[in-house]
Design a protein around this nucleic acid. Structure first.
Lengths: 248, 248
DNA sequence: GTTGCCACTTGATTTGGGTCAATTCGCGTT
DNA sequence: AACGCGAATTGACCCAAATCAAGTGGCAAC
């Protein structure tokens, strides 16, 4: 797909700080203009629920800045995170009336929304969009499957190490590509959100983070700021073969 | 999409016993012919590995008959099933050189394969295919997320009940739509495969099946033939709200 | 400065499911 | 009939993580 190298992350809108996936701003200008006409922005505060599972959803959207989570819940309150939305990620499903998950902002968040009906019509006419969306969805599916291995077969310690390496990797792509060994970042999630991500309790999350700290795998300043002195060590702790999967 | 109601399951080939998804046999005849020219069949015996994770994969395919599993493995041998392929399901990923999972036949299986390169080229030109593939992938993603809730938050008993209700549902769509209460089917998986599906050990699977039998939730003839006297009861055991999700 | 709140930590105890090991149940072979 | 073999069951024991409970630390509001 042309120009993908120039602005890799892109679905659509001209003046977003993030180039969204799917339409190349250089070669698909008319499509861009059309998307422009059906788009609007919405922002949410940290902690706010963006969408409740089952709600009618009349838009699809793309995260511009901030972080949100997709969660599913059993009647008795047990909840499992099933998706983590970071900037440039896509939310919502063309062809589906109602939301299948709760979407919650964990930080202040800005989303670039497109009215669903016109978006779908446009997708019918514009092969690029469906194709790009397919690539994105396949990536998400791979991530979900990697995550299933984590949920089904990893120990608590491995789960935590995996999550940390995922966050580190996501962060690293923006910030410091340089030093492979040492790495520093902020955890964008509370202990409870991490627990919901990993299928653990928040107490276990806390204990395992303490254990990793005690064993020198990570260093902590405050509760959220993490330094990993040796990424390789962390990846070994995560139990991942090779360079450690590609969740999220 | 036209004619979807007439032959709902369809990706492609004219003489498969199953109508595959994505191309309508009535209105897209030329596409059908083209797919016809790049397709071939492969069959595998029960237990055979279809593809090893990491292998070069020069085709995409659709399951005609039989059952296969997608699995991921940690170096130390812990394995997690991440997908269950039933007739009409799609395998392989356009745009990806090598396989990301092990694909194993659990019964004798027949697959309808399309050479990857020409299939991709065709997809570029044919919006319908990409759109249909997108729908299918989104469905798979939903299933994967439902499965994540199961892996992360359900008890062993709930996991077993969930799996049974999934198999029952899949089976029911083919066979008896009639009686909602009582339902009979064969388990297409060994205890070990069920364990890999559910993130349990095979001993736990066995114990929980025995427990469900003891409690009258299911009846067993032999090891594999299951009768559910009351589907509603089973769904309650599964912990699912509503009519029980849509895994697989 | 004190109060209250929330995120987090840590400890004590319990328990669901894993591990190890011994049978049993088919079922095809000789 | 006897054998072998893989699939499944069942039991005894153990341990990782859940549960229950108390306490700490930071920070915003008054």
């Amino acid at each position: 797909m042309a120009h993908d190298d120039v602005h890799p992350v892109s679905l659509a809108c001209g003046d977003c700080p993030i180039r969204h996936r799917a339409v190349c701003a250089r070669c698909e200008t008319d499509e861009l203009d059309e998307l422009e006409s059906i788009k609007y922005y919405r922002s949410f505060e940290a902690g706010q629920t963006v969408i409740w599972s089952g709600d009618k959803m009349d838009f699809v959207a793309s995260v511009v800045s901030g972080i949100a989570t997709l969660t599913q819940t059993l009647e008795d309150g047990r909840t499992q995170m099933v998706g983590l939305l970071l900037p440039s990620d896509f939310v919502g499903r063309p062809g589906r009336e109602s939301a299948a998950y709760n979407v919650t902002a964990t930080t202040d968040i800005l989303m670039c929304c497109f009215r669903r009906k016109p978006f779908e019509e446009m997708m019918e006419r514009t092969p690029h969009i469906a194709q790009r969306l397919l690539q994105m969805t396949l990536d998400e599916l791979d991530a979900a499957r990697e995550w299933m291995l984590l949920l089904g077969r990893k120990t608590a310690r491995e789960k935590i190490a995996s999550l940390l390496s995922i966050v580190a990797r996501r962060d690293a792509s923006i910030k410091l590509r340089t030093a492979t060994g040492r790495m520093t970042f902020d955890l964008p999630l509370t202990r409870e959100a991490m627990a919901d991500y990993l299928g653990l309790t928040l107490e276990t999350v806390s204990r395992q983070i303490s254990a990793l700290k005690r064993d020198g795998v990570i260093e902590l300043e405050g509760k959220r700021h993490v330094t990993v002195p040796d990424m390789d060590r962390l990846l070994i702790e995560a139990g991942d073969d090779s360079d450690g999967g590609f969740l999220v």
